[in-house]
């Protein structure tokens, strides 16, 4: 029965077409729909025009569906700086064909989905976004929450400057409770690698799975055999992917639930990124060690700096010449 009702009302809320106007029942704020942005588990999100510009509005599919999410957003807006989620601007009801539906209005995050971005701009972005994400998670965890339903669909890259942001905080759960909402692929319970208690390590597992998925855009499944070693399977997926391999130790650590806080995982990931971008340095070191011992350090470093400073000088001179010639021609033109 209830399912049926949900289904019907979902249709109602997702049917609103561009140009639809309404005024909130309680707060009397006017809205006009520009287009549909997407639909989540609990409702449909629209881009709307308000008195203060473009905003996003989520309309719930039944009477109670949005209340959890609104409660979470409200808690977030009390946190200083309001960095934990999109800021909540209005909470009200809308009447659609005689029925009341709840809705809320939030900041409109304009950007590109994580996976699309990584495909277009290169996998070297992924570890950077994961570092950003871990920073945000750490702050969220310190406020006593766990995100829960962390997945690429809930992440967006805003910018420039490119920055990962999350939205759809409907699954956000107080620490120590049972996770409210999850998606199997990113859920440690599904992989048999833990329970569904809201603790920081739950989010870190999902983060590791998101990282893995950037290399395997089609979610793979666990083997049907109940006795299979899923950790071993994930380990193999990581080993077979060159972009993931440098981070294998960190990923496995997160999958095993060994990181108790996001800060530590972030630190180790940053170190791993450093090591990856280091190969030039190691080559330099090696060539240095070949040098005879009696040479002094100072002279060595000077020697190796030379070619670089020479290049910089050349570039500076060239750009100066170019700039002055442009100015000269401009002068001629006038």
């Amino acid at each position: 029965m209830m399912e049926k009702m949900n289904f019907q009302s979902k249709n109602q809320a997702s049917k609103l077409s561009a140009g639809t106007k309404w005024v909130g029942k309680w707060n009397k704020n006017p809205y006009r729909i520009i287009r549909t942005l997407g639909s989540g588990a609990t409702g449909v999100v629209y881009l709307v025009e308000t008195r203060s510009g473009q905003r996003a509005v989520k309309i719930g599919e039944n009477k109670m569906s949005l209340t959890s999410e609104i409660n979470v957003l409200k808690h977030f807006s009390k946190v200083r700086g309001n960095v934990l989620g999109p800021s909540l601007l209005d909470v009200d009801d809308i009447e659609i064909r005689g029925e009341m539906y709840p809705f809320f209005c939030m900041e409109y995050l304009k950007g590109e989905p994580l996976l699309d971005f990584a495909k277009k701009r290169g996998t070297e972005w992924v570890p950077v976004f994961i570092v950003q994400l871990l920073g945000d998670l750490d702050r969220l965890h310190q406020e006593g929450w766990v995100f829960g339903d962390l997945k690429p669909e809930n992440l967006i890259i805003t910018g420039p400057p490119s920055r990962v942001r999350w939205f759809d905080v409907g699954g956000t759960t107080k620490q120590g409770r049972a996770i409210k909402e999850y998606t199997e692929f990113y859920d440690r319970g599904y992989w048999g690698l833990g329970d569904r208690k809201a603790e920081p390590s739950y989010d870190l597992f999902s983060t590791a799975m998101i990282f893995i998925q950037t290399a395997y855009p089609h979610r793979f499944k666990k083997p049907a055999d109940a006795g299979s070693d899923n950790l071993e399977l994930l380990r193999r997926y990581i080993s077979h992917s060159p972009p993931l391999l440098p981070y294998k130790k960190i990923l496995i650590h997160a999958l095993k639930g060994k990181y108790t806080d996001a800060q530590l995982m972030k630190k180790e990931l940053m170190e791993a990124i450093d090591n990856r971008t280091a190969p030039k340095k190691t080559v330099e070191k090696q060539s240095r060690s070949v040098q005879p011992k009696r040479h002094r350090k100072k002279t060595k470093s000077k020697k190796y700096k030379e070619p670089q400073s020479f290049r910089t000088e050349l570039i500076l001179t060239a750009s100066f010449l170019f700039l002055s010639s442009v100015l000269y021609f401009m002068g001629q033109w006038m």
Binding site: K63, N71, D92
Partner: peptide, 22 residues
């Protein structure tokens, strides 16, 4: 009914339901 309550109060009621569910 629940929907006659303003959204704020409804949120508080839902929090009670959430707490009980836990």
């Amino acid at each position: 009914e629940m929907e006659d309550l303003p959204p704020d109060k409804r949120g508080e009621v839902m929090e009670v339901v959430d707490d009980l569910g836990e």
